[in-house]
Write a protein that binds this DNA or RNA. Structure first.
Lengths: 113, 113
DNA sequence: CCGTATCCAAATAGATACTG
DNA sequence: CAGTATCTATTTGGATACGG
């Protein structure tokens, strides 16, 4: 009797390809990514502003995480021709689309932590 | 003009405490955790069975990941008095409750990867 | 069969100084 | 201000051998 007895009623929820879930986890995993994304949900920010909001992050690591997020196309780095030295980081549509997902993660965490 | 123009219509979705989301990510992050959880969604398994299903995992790492999952109370290690040498790993209720969440992760990943 | 013990490699993150 | 360069520390995962 090793097979779960619950097989019948639980399978109405089909399991999607969990490799896709692994991809999602991969873009979210990183010491400060969630924090940065959440800050950017509210407004566009510059490097120094993020640094100020997250005092414990070092410049090197902030640069790395931003680069990752940009490569995964979750954020955009916007440079104006008028002042290319003051780029702004902004959520992309893909990044914005994470909002409900992050909320789902938070709800599960709140309930089960 | 740095403030997002989208502030008005997007805030109907309140942002939950993202620390709770970080907790959720933390229990899911680990090289093989998702794989193991998905296998256990279908049936209880023994150490050696999981090892066979994931040939590339080493015994040390499998033991570590199982220990993590057990500590986070996502899985149960079930030992029968009759044969304490043949424990079975089983999803806990908390572990089972991840199913819809993992599906959400997979759906987002499928769409945006 | 179900792990643990040792040792090692890789990835990630931190401290600090420096540059265009 | 917005990063890069170095160097180090920590965490995580892998290879392999051994033990109850």
């Amino acid at each position: 009797m090793r097979k779960n007895s619950s097989t019948n009623y639980e399978n109405e929820q089909v399991l999607h390809d969990f490799c896709d879930a692994a991809y999602t986890l991969s873009v979210l995993s990183g010491r400060w990514k969630l924090t940065i994304l959440v800050k950017l949900m509210e407004q566009d920010l510059r490097f120094g502003e993020i640094k100020q909001m997250i005092p414990k992050i070092t410049e090197r690591v902030l640069a790395l995480q931003l680069k990752n997020l940009e490569q995964d196309q979750l954020i955009l780095k916007i440079q104006h021709k008028s002042d290319p030295k003051a780029p702004v980081y902004r959520l992309s549509l893909k990044g914005k689309s994470l909002k409900p997902l992050i909320n789902s993660l938070a709800k599960w965490g709140e309930k089960y932590k």
